[in-house]
Amino acid sequence: MDNELENRLASDIDHADFATEAPPDASVDRDESRIIFQTKSVNMQVAALSNAFEDARFHIGGLDDPRIITPLGAEVTMTIQNQDELHPHGWKLIKETPPFAHPEIAASAPPAFPGAEITHIAPHHQETIHFTVDQPGVYTYLCPDLSDNDVGLYGIWEVAPGH
């Protein structure tokens, strides 16, 4: 793809309402900063945000870095949009949980589930991933790019067996 076409496609992404509404089939608990899915078909939008020189964050369902709770066996489809003006971002779900004694090890950890990773999304681009959460537990979603203040974009993902 030539650079002019790629730049035009990137600039055509609409950031205004992306990841601001509750995902379908989920409830949002704003007081506890949680998004709870009741069905095994999980669809959500994630915006990687940075306010140049302030804390970077993942914006999901109108919340910043919320706890995501899904039922065991959920099939997840996520569209991740990099709204950062300058820096690439990624997204990965790992088994480790904070605090991270060695952020570089956490950032390079393998994904907890096959397909639960995008290593690079250029500014103003988006990618979609699909994976199945087939083991109960508590996981961390994060940006594997260590320029994010030693794992600055992250949140907790819980796979609940009886959910």
Rank of each mutant, 00 (worst) to 15 (best):
D14R: 14
Q83G: 08
D64P: 03
H89V: 07
A74M: 04
G62H: 12
S27N: 13
V76N: 01
I80H: 05
R34P: 00
I68G: 02
E85R: 05
D55G: 14
I35S: 13
D12E: 13
Q81E: 12
H87F: 15
H59L: 13
T97G: 00
A52R: 10
D29I: 03
I60V: 13
V46R: 04
R8F: 14
N51C: 07
I80E: 03
K40D: 06
L93M: 10
M1C: 06
N3E: 15
E85A: 12
E85W: 11
D14E: 04
T79W: 03
V28P: 08
H89Q: 00
F37G: 01
S11V: 06
W91H: 01
R67S: 12
Q45K: 05
A19T: 02
K92M: 13
E32S: 15
S27K: 04
T20Y: 02
D64Y: 07
T97M: 05
D84T: 05
L5Y: 14
A16P: 00
G90S: 06
N3P: 15
I80T: 09
I94L: 09
D64T: 05
D2V: 02
N7M: 11
S27C: 06
G61H: 00
D29T: 02
E32W: 01
D84A: 02
L93I: 11
A52P: 07
S11W: 14
A52I: 14
Q83T: 00
D2A: 06
L63S: 07
S41R: 15
G73I: 03
G62P: 12
N43H: 11
D17S: 15
N51I: 05
A19M: 05
T70Q: 02
P66M: 01
P23S: 14
I60C: 04
E32Q: 15
R57I: 01
V28I: 02
R67P: 03
P88T: 06
F58L: 01
Q45R: 04
D12Y: 14
R34F: 03
A26H: 06
M78I: 15
D31N: 13
D64K: 09
E32C: 07
E21Q: 09
N82Y: 12
D64M: 06
F58G: 02
Q81W: 11
A26F: 03
L72E: 10
G61N: 00
I35H: 07
S50D: 13
M44W: 15
A10R: 15
R57L: 01
D65C: 01
Q38F: 14
I69Q: 06
H59D: 09
M78E: 01
Q81L: 15
L63Q: 09
K95Q: 06
P66R: 03
E21Y: 00
F18T: 00
L72D: 06
I68L: 07
Q45H: 08
A47D: 04
D31S: 08
I68S: 01
P24G: 15
F18M: 01
A16N: 10
R8A: 14
L93E: 02
N3W: 15
E54Y: 10
S27D: 13
S33N: 15
I60S: 09
H59Q: 12
I94N: 04
D2G: 11
G62D: 13
F53P: 06
D55T: 11
M1D: 11
A48L: 14
D25V: 03
A16K: 15
N51G: 13
L9I: 06
G90P: 04
